[in-house]
């Protein structure tokens, strides 16, 4: 018995097979090399900025002072965007998975996917020309009645191009990502769990709360984190919508706003020369490390859940 298996293992390898397998393997390794190359080249070109000061860093004393307000703005905009997008996205995913008949849910899902297809620069146009002016009265109202909160201290922006507007645009852009992943996980909920809940007399909401959410919890967390990764790195919409002045503030509706790393690069790179380029690349490296860590964690959660389920 064992001899037949051994001879099959030693079947002669054809040259075509070796070449083809080599190409396939090479393509896989090329991707790893590209990813390593991103980190390597950004470090190479960003390194000189660590010793810089003054004009190249917009007057900041050292690189940390330069990058800290940008990191703050990036995190603030992304977290605000998630606060808006996550409940909406989970609601939309629930509608598609449980509240519409199967015939319609495909079309409905496609409409949400179209949101993801719109280029970011068009969102930027829409944010400046439509959303900002529409939100202006809301900001005035917030300043008037909720001005005692530090978030709405004002004075309200006259253009509507505030960090809150930028976050709303970001929220619209990450919503399809969170929706798509949550929907996928909701529809994987074991049919028996749902039917058992219904058989005990649960209403539809109780069924979702008792059988769907416990099953989908880790998936929802990682969907949110993937959305966070997208919101952190989104460039053009923020660069166009936000009128940034690089301050650190929690005031969400005024005309002086913190900038984000990505928007700062997009706004300054075309005209930058010398050390300024290195400083921008170094800030890009910071952004890369942050998003890489967020995505890494999100994917690790997904992978762990999949291993537990299989």
């Amino acid at each position: 018995m064992s001899t037949t298996i051994a001879t099959r293992d030693k079947a002669p390898r054809r040259r075509g097979d070796v070449i083809f397998a080599g190409i396939a393997r090479g393509a896989g390794i090329a991707i790893l090399v590209a990813l390593a190359g991103v980190a390597l080249f950004l470090t190479l070109e960003g390194f000189p900025a660590l010793g810089a000061s003054g004009a190249a860093l917009d007057g900041a004393a050292n690189f940390l002072d330069y990058v800290w307000p940008l990191v703050f703005g990036t995190l603030l905009a992304a977290i605000l965007a998630l606060l808006i997008a996550t409940p909406l996205a989970i609601g939309v995913a629930l509608v598609i998975a449980f509240y519409t008949p199967r015939r319609i849910s495909g079309v409905v899902g496609y409409m949400i996917d179209l949101l993801a297809a719109v280029p970011s620069v068009v969102y930027g146009l829409w944010g400046i020309a439509f959303l900002g002016p529409q939100l202006k009265p809301l900001y005035q109202w917030l300043e008037e009645y909720l001005g005692f909160l530090p978030f709405f201290a004002g004075p309200a922006s006259s253009t509507g191009r505030t960090i809150l507007t930028a976050s709303i645009v970001l929220a619209i852009m990450v919503l399809p990502i969170i929706t798509a992943i949550s929907r996928e996980i909701f529809t994987q909920t074991p049919q028996l769990h749902m039917e058992a809940a219904m058989a005990l007399g649960a209403t539809r909401w109780e069924m979702i709360k008792l059988s769907v959410f416990p099953y989908a919890r880790s998936g929802m967390v990682s969907a949110t984190m993937l959305g966070l990764g997208r919101a952190l790195g989104e460039t053009m919409a923020v660069a166009m919508v936000l009128s940034a002045s690089g301050v650190v503030t929690f005031n969400l509706i005024s005309s002086t706003n913190p900038s984000t790393i990505a928007a700062n690069i997009a706004l300054n790179f075309p005209e930058a020369t010398g050390l300024k380029v290195n400083a921008l690349i170094a800030s890009g490296l910071v952004l890369f490390v942050i998003t890489f860590a967020v995505n890494f964690a999100a994917r690790a959660i997904v992978a762990r859940t999949e291993r537990e389920r299989s």
């Binding site: 080249f41 950004l42 070109e45 952004l287 890369f288």
Partner: peptide
Amino acid sequence: LARWITFLVDVMTGIPSIVAGLFAYALFV
């Protein structure tokens, strides 16, 4: 190797587009 590639490809989908641009610049410069 395959497991690492699968995982890193997933992570790669999250690279900010501006970082990709900076990478190309840093390479070509």
